[in-house]
Amino acid sequence: MDKLAAINIQNCHFAYAPDKPILQIPSFVIAPGTTVFLRGPSGSGKSTLLQLCTGMLLPQSGQIHVLGESISTLSASARDRFRAANIGVVLQQFNLIDYLSVYDNIKLAQHFTHQDPPTQHTAYLDELLQALRLSPEIQQQKANALSVGQQQRVAILRALINRPKLLIVDEPTSALDEAAKTSFMETLFTLQRMTCCTLLFVSHDMRLTKGFDRVVDLADIDDISTAAVSTADTGLNEWPNTSIKGVQ
């Protein structure tokens, strides 16, 4: 078993309720430094899989190793610290706390690593700003004053600020128009090459697969997903984007 894999999932079973299994993954391994496109229709359990990988959910059985760390056996607080320091996450929408400034959003991500913010971050931050084509002045703006495209780019910046070895991106382009999508994907690959992190990109949009080292269909690794695609129980296992309902 390759313990140094970016993600190594073995015999993993997860269900929100005993009679409603969501995931049953015999084996799924992502090599470090690679870019992986994970495809799956909404409701197929791919968001649940991401939450398992980040340690926000725990499997009922099986092992999950992330960057060599057995994330499912860490203590709750160690898991949270591990996530803060090693995994960058960009979601479909609403990645930022909208009443905080861009700068504070970034600072907050650094705060939860429980490390003293190193000074070299300023240089790195400028580098990221430049790569994302964000002006330095944007840092003083409130997150809710930005356009959706700007918010998504700031979200990438925030996800990369702690130099994570794993970057998880979940449907990041669904709120963007076609032109923005293309430029977003280009930027994402540029940054991946710059930081040499492992990229796990999740989407249902097969047009975005270009440039990825590997394209995986969730149905191929998940026993349940294969059988349940047609009868997928939607709504339970979504990422925070479903909270839009709550807002409305």
Binding site: T54, M56, A76, S77, D80, R81, R83, A84, A85, V89, L91, F94, N95, L96, I97, L108, A109, F112, T113, R158, W239, P240, S243, G246, V247
Partner: peptide, 20 residues
């Protein structure tokens, strides 16, 4: 709390513990 569900999810995602 209802409108803050999202905010809590964001905080959790970037590594905030429930006790935080």
């Amino acid at each position: 709390m209802r409108e803050r569900t999202r905010e809590i999810a964001i905080l959790r995602t970037i590594g905030a513990a429930p006790k935080t």
